[in-house]
Amino acid sequence: MLIDAHVALGPWPFAPLPERTAPQLVAHLKSHGINRALVSHLGAIFLPEPMPANRALFAAVCRTPALLPVPVLNPALANWREHLAACLAAAQIRAVKIIPAYHNYSLRLPALAPFVAAINAAGLRLIVATRLEDERHRYHALAVKGLPVAQVAAFLARFSATHMVCSGLYKPEIETLAVTHENFSADIAFAEWLNTLAVLTQKIPARRLLLGTNAPLFETRAQVDKLRLARLPARTLALIGSGNATRLFGL
């Protein structure tokens, strides 16, 4: 039983990746032992406002209970409250995702104060996507950089009462943030080193790590094996593989 906290549907314009339907994605994940997944739509990254992609997401997963929709919102847009209300009305959601770097705002954005308050009031978990890809060799015309870890740290300090999920952090970034901040969990999609999880759990409690494959951008088997073959107690693997997601997203 695994839960994937970092999966996407939809087209990725910069590589010939598989564009799966929701049932195909369920079958794909199941073939790797993943029973449930939190899914966003890649279209929300690039469209001028994310709702068309969110609506496509809701429509795609409405008959696949294994896929839990995570809409992407943009608090830099004037009508984010309207978008949040539309998402809450459209589907049973457990979390919303923000992608500041791709949506051209920083985590210092003043609107994030009412936004985080509204997310908390709605009983949702906030997922902060800090990066989506390796910037060294991606599409040449994209200038978007991953969120600086100092900016993430300031954000965590500013909203210290909110426990959020940071997605896309590198291993050293998780370790750095874990020293001073307890109000975040992280998926492991971008965390890698020899014996990743054994090393990482020395720096951050296992109850704050989540399986995330970053499919379809990353190879699912590779990401699952990072967890499956880690030399850790079964209880720890179960926490990272599903227990923490169950707790954090109220599944």
């Binding site: 890698e192 080193w193 020899l194 014996n195 990743t196 190879e219 699912t220 088997r221 590779a222 990401q223 699952v224 094996d225 990072k226 499956r228 073959l229 880690a230």
Partner: peptide, 17 residues
């Protein structure tokens, strides 16, 4: 590229292709 990379991941990407 060990130790910068995780063996299970680097093997898994071949097995997953």
């Amino acid at each position: 590229d060990l130790p910068i990379r995780e063996t299970s991941v680097t093997v898994g990407r071949v097995l997953g292709a």
